[in-house]
């Protein structure tokens, strides 16, 4: 029982990180129908940006308040990663609109390889550990066999930040004119353009929002694991994509739900079956979902237009 609750907490924390990344995949897929393969690497890049900003704050500027530091790190990482998201869309994807179908995916793979190695060349190939930022834990209860169920402050921060940002994001998509434009482009890009929506700008903003949420995930990842390396974008990226597909690609609540499910499956799988095969489990889910229910849990079935 104690193990179960503990894994539930861990799984939900991990799941919120995956959910945040998954939104970037699902929004881009919804609006231009492409798998943004580089999104995982944008996430990794954002973790590096967060790491560097954090180091600047603590070692150079002497900020001692962790809460303030985290807030500044989060905002800087979001802003700077958004710029990367915008730039990659502008350079690598926009010229391909209307090209043959696989062109954007190949281009995205190129961007993914580029980003990972750009970080490797500029920052070095080693793992980058951070000093532990938040160490406190709350012991929820102690079991009979001495196994304590603990909820760390880190986990609270991660889940709360995710919830708040998802709320803001939800408001943005549902209530603002930007969100309306976005949903219109998703339904019919040509018609939206005819009705005076700046489609290019909307798509750019979609990438910016996706990158900003990936930056939140990157900051949280850094906070949670305390280490990042240039190769860390690939596996979380694929898992988040799995989450997006599982939730139904194109569906925003689906992405969050899928992220939570993937996070839970991963932690429970590691706890009860085998930790070695946890990535195999994630990849298998990806294959199974795509083959047997490509529209996912909350997605709409896709109709092929000729």
């Amino acid at each position: 029982m104690e193990v179960f609750v503990q894994q539930l907490i861990n799984g939900l924390t991990l799941g919120s990180i995956y959910g945040l990344i998954a939104i970037g995949y699902t929004m881009v897929f919804g609006i231009i129908g492409m798998v943004n393969f580089a999104h995982g690497d944008v996430f990794m890049l954002s973790a590096f940006i967060a790491l560097i900003v954090f180091l600047v704050l603590t070692t150079w500027l002497g900020v001692t308040s962790i809460a303030l530091a985290l807030l500044v790190v989060l905002i800087c990482a979001m802003a700077l990663t958004s710029l990367w998201g915008w730039a990659t869309e502008r350079i690598a994807y926009r010229p391909l609109r209307g090209s043959f179908r696989l062109a954007p995916l190949i281009s995205a793979i190129g961007v993914s390889i580029f980003l990972a190695n750009f970080v490797q060349v500029t920052q070095g190939a080693r793992n980058k550990p951070t000093p532990p930022m938040v160490r406190e834990v709350i012991v929820l209860w102690e079991g009979a066999n001495g196994y304590a169920v603990a909820l760390s402050y880190k986990q609270i921060i991660i889940m709360a930040t995710t919830a708040v940002l998802l709320g803001i994001f939800w408001y943005l998509v549902q209530r603002t004119s930007l969100g309306r434009a976005q949903r219109a482009c998703e339904q019919d890009r040509k018609m939206a353009a005819l009705l005076g929506i700046d489609v290019d700008r909307t798509i750019s903003l979609t990438f910016v929002i996706g990158a900003a949420l990936a930056a939140v995930a990157g900051t949280m990842y850094l906070l949670y694991y305390g280490v990042v390396s240039f190769a860390d974008g690939f596996v979380p990226g694929v898992k988040a994509f799995t989450a997006a597909v599982l939730g139904g690609i194109g569906s925003l609540p689906g992405a969050v739900l899928g992220g939570l499910i993937i996070g839970l499956i991963e932690t429970f799988w590691s706890a009860y079956f085998s930790i070695e095969y946890k990535d195999v489990a994630a990849f298998s889910i990806l294959a199974i979902v795509l083959i047997f229910m490509p529209s996912g849990l909350l997605g709409r079935p896709e109709v092929e237009k000729v």
């Binding site: 492409m34 798998v35 179908r101 696989l102 995916l105 694929v238 994509f241 085998s274 070695e276 095969y277 990535d279 195999v280 990849f283 298998s284 990806l286 294959a287 795509l290 083959i291 490509p294 092929e304």
Partner: peptide, 26 residues
């Protein structure tokens, strides 16, 4: 996987490739 559309096919082949590698490791 071959009845999947182009980009899904790509991702599933990626998943299979990784599964084979992870199984070989473990």
């Amino acid at each position: 996987v071959l009845r999947l559309r182009g980009d899904y096919l790509a991702i599933v082949t990626l998943a299979f490739g990784e599964i084979i590698r992870l199984v070989l490791i473990n």
